[in-house]
Amino acid sequence: MTSRSPSTAELVHLVLARFGATDAAGVARLFAPEVEWRAPDVTSARWTSGIRTRREVESFFLSAFSALDLEGISVHRLLVDGEDAAVLGRMRWRPTSTSDVVDADFSLSLSVHDGEVDGCWLLHDTLAVAMALGAVRTWSP
């Protein structure tokens, strides 16, 4: 008996569930050994793009979870078209260094092949996160 690979929608649900459980290793196991990656570094708001290994994906999530305690995630829309999926939602974070709360919208685009995520594009409110972490300040006259 052979096991079937999860569908794109099932894999997206698994990614979100592991993310919601702040399980960096569990999220990374759902990714292919090499991933086309586009996402801002959580602690610096600097963009990283290119091919990433599964270990680098895990490191990204470990860094995010160590800087920000995830309090909640809600999905507003999930769109699936074959091997591609887009997720629109909102996350609630609390920086581990302060008591501030960050509510940030996000969008996530995933590409799936042979039951593994092989493409990831994460967009979130980097300014709100950077401000909450004290990495930037706004100026008002």
Results as ranks from 00 to 15, higher is better:
residue 135 A to N: 03
residue 127 L to N: 05
residue 100 D to T: 11
residue 29 R to I: 01
residue 75 V to Y: 03
residue 127 L to C: 08
residue 45 A to P: 05
residue 34 E to W: 04
residue 60 F to N: 02
residue 87 V to R: 09
residue 136 V to S: 10
residue 37 W to V: 01
residue 110 L to N: 06
residue 78 L to C: 03
residue 95 P to D: 06
residue 136 V to H: 14
residue 72 G to F: 03
residue 75 V to I: 14
residue 132 A to Y: 13
residue 122 L to M: 10
residue 73 I to H: 02
residue 89 G to N: 00
residue 97 S to G: 02
residue 130 A to N: 12
residue 10 E to V: 00
residue 24 A to F: 07
residue 60 F to C: 04
residue 79 L to M: 10
residue 88 L to T: 06
residue 129 V to M: 07
residue 56 E to Y: 09
residue 72 G to Y: 03
residue 115 G to F: 04
residue 95 P to W: 06
residue 134 G to E: 03
residue 107 S to N: 14
residue 5 S to C: 03
residue 83 E to C: 02
residue 78 L to M: 11
residue 1 M to T: 04
residue 129 V to H: 01
residue 62 L to C: 14
residue 129 V to S: 02
residue 133 L to H: 03
residue 24 A to N: 13
residue 80 V to W: 06
residue 70 L to N: 07
residue 91 M to I: 01
residue 94 R to C: 07
residue 89 G to W: 04
residue 77 R to G: 12
residue 43 T to V: 15
residue 22 T to G: 00
residue 75 V to S: 05
residue 74 S to T: 14
residue 53 T to G: 13
residue 133 L to D: 04
residue 139 W to H: 11
residue 116 E to C: 01
residue 137 R to V: 12
residue 136 V to G: 08
residue 119 G to P: 02
residue 102 V to H: 01
residue 10 E to T: 02
residue 94 R to V: 13
residue 130 A to R: 09
residue 111 S to T: 12
residue 121 W to R: 13
residue 65 F to Q: 06
residue 88 L to G: 01
residue 60 F to I: 06
residue 44 S to P: 01
residue 129 V to L: 05
residue 134 G to Q: 03
residue 124 H to K: 00
residue 135 A to I: 03
residue 57 V to G: 08
residue 21 A to N: 13
residue 56 E to M: 06
residue 40 P to E: 05
residue 35 V to L: 07
residue 40 P to N: 11
residue 23 D to W: 03
residue 31 F to H: 15
residue 92 R to N: 01
residue 48 T to K: 02
residue 3 S to P: 01
residue 17 A to M: 04
residue 62 L to R: 15
residue 93 W to Y: 15
residue 121 W to V: 13
